[in-house]
Design a protein around this nucleic acid. Structure first.
Length: 304
DNA sequence: AACACGGGCAACCGCACAGAC
DNA sequence: GGTCTGTGCGGTTGCCCGTGT
């Protein structure tokens, strides 16, 4: 778990409180009559009083960046906030819940998956699936662009098509029959033998069908599966370090002083970001089709 | 003017993690 | 290895304010 940027600054102490610090705090509270707990004070400082905070509304550029980052990171507000200097995770979370979410819905886009909503629902909501949703090894790429070969991100679509080679029907069934794709009694899918990577990856679906990326939960699988499970964190680290690089490059492109190409829109950035990340992930030789896997596993779930 | 309602936002809550002891 | 403390994080709650009736 990362620390808040303020604690990485050299002049900010961390760890146990010294008697001198206790005395200073005590004096402040007794002198000014502050009746707040430490946690509340900390929150107030982080979200409101910190001198490096930006005031005022978020710019269109910031909004675009949040949108793009959410597509990749999901509700990891602190990580999103880390890319927006002077903005807090709380501010971004509130902005997302009160504004951006609605905007996406109005555009017919599911704010959780960033996929186009079907036109069947009365309120434009996705109908609940008849069976429990299937684990998707690449939730980050469930963007509209990847499913629309005729859209503005056609290049991305074709790249993803090439990067993630579909498994043939019999190839999948062979894997399933040989227990290379398996599911534990606790609801974990294990793709370790199918994904051609050094570690075995595991993940849990939450009740609402979203994916639980928590490494801590995945770590609990050690005992269940009887073997070392977690390379998940290493994948996450790889993904995030890739993301850091892309963000840096994005900022460079946004800065005309550096004489680099200008990014025109959030769509362009999304495409750019996702394309770059897909290249990084393809380096990990992930060789599986999510759609094929989902279809087949759904079928097996129904028949079991 | 009074009330209901909804949106925006700050603050709170509970959990998890890391490090010290 | 267990416990305690400090900290980070995301979901949720509740207050304030504007708007509509």
């Amino acid at each position: 778990m990362g620390r808040h940027p303020c604690c990485t600054e050299q002049k900010v102490r961390k760890g146990l409180w010294s008697p001198e610090e206790d005395e200073k705090l005590y004096n402040h509270i007794t002198r000014f009559g502050l009746e707040r707990c430490g946690k509340s004070c900390r929150l107030r400082w982080i979200n409101y009083l910190r001198p490096d905070l930006k005031r005022g509304n978020l710019s269109q550029q910031e909004e675009d960046l949040i949108m793009s980052l959410h597509k990749v990171l999901g509700n990891r507000w602190s990580q999103i906030a880390a890319q927006l200097p002077g903005r807090t995770d709380n501010e971004i979370k509130n902005f997302w819940n009160s504004s951006l979410k609605k905007k996406l819905k109005q555009r017919g886009i599911n704010p959780i998956t960033h996929k186009q909503l079907r036109e069947t629902g009365a309120q434009g909501e996705m109908p609940r699936p008849a069976v429990k949703p299937i684990f998707n090894p690449f939730p980050s790429f469930e963007c509209q662009a990847a499913t629309d070969p005729t859209g503005t991100n056609a290049n991305l679509y074709h790249q993803l098509q090439q990067t993630y080679r579909p498994l043939e029907q019999n190839e999948f069934m062979k894997n399933f029959d040989n227990n290379l794709v398996s599911r534990s009694s606790s609801g974990y899918w294990n793709y370790g033998e199918v994904l051609n990577v050094s570690d075995t990856y595991a993940i849990q679906e939450s009740l609402n069908g979203s994916i639980d990326w928590n490494c801590g939960i995945a770590a609990q699988m050690d005992s269940m599966l009887g073997k070392e499970v977690l390379g998940w964190s290493s994948l996450e680290i790889k993904l995030e370090s890739s993301l850091q690089t892309e963000i840096k490059t994005y900022h460079q492109r946004l800065n005309p002083c550096q004489g680099l190409q200008h990014v025109e829109s959030s769509e362009e950035f999304s495409s750019y970001l996702t394309t770059s990340l897909s290249q990084d992930l393809s380096d990990a030789c992930l060789d599986v089709s999510q759609d094929e896997l989902a279809r087949e596993l759904n079928g097996n779930l129904l028949s079991s």
